[in-house]
Amino acid sequence: MKRMSALLAAVLALSATSLSARVDVGQPAPAFSLADSNGRTRTLEEFKGRTVVLEWTNAECPFVRKHYDSGNMQRQQKEATAAGVVWLAINSGAPGKQGEVDGGDANQQIQIDHSAPTAYLLDPTGATGRAYGAATTPHMYVIDGQGVLRYKGGIDSIISDDAADIPKATQYVKQALAELAAGKPVSVPLSAPYGCAVKYAPN
């Protein structure tokens, strides 16, 4: 019986990892190659040597709105990119789903929100989102210059859809970037992502 359950556990563990891929902090971040909103192909590889932030987004999600209508996300984008960090917004919404965009929509959304990502990447198949295990919008990842994942989780520490909570929350991405820039270990490398579901294409 005991051997049976151990075997069962091993099989389960294997199947679990193959079903929903994920990446752990301290591990190399999965490579990707996606078209940006201007039709240009962007890869993680091209930003080697620079710190990269990945932001899963969907402009129609109330949690995303919380951080854009308050200006929090744009502020962090501008600060990060001004410090030489690469900030990639990624939309893994499947065609036809709420919040899914094409390049033109994405550029229009950038204008509406005055947002400032380095690029807005389109992942309509959801392959990149699934490779990272991106579950929510927003869902944040920070990758260091060596391509190693240093942070994954929520944008901040207070799980709510109320913009009034932003000033009270610890902004984890901002904190991780500051610590990385200072050559320190990231003090909070993991937090609970919160938000709307990423609207993936069925697989």
Binding site: K48, G49, R50, T51, A83, G84, V85, G145, L180, A181, A182, G183
Partner: peptide, 10 residues
Amino acid sequence: PSYSTSGSSP
């Protein structure tokens, strides 16, 4: 010889 490419982390 320890050439490093660390950008924002000196």
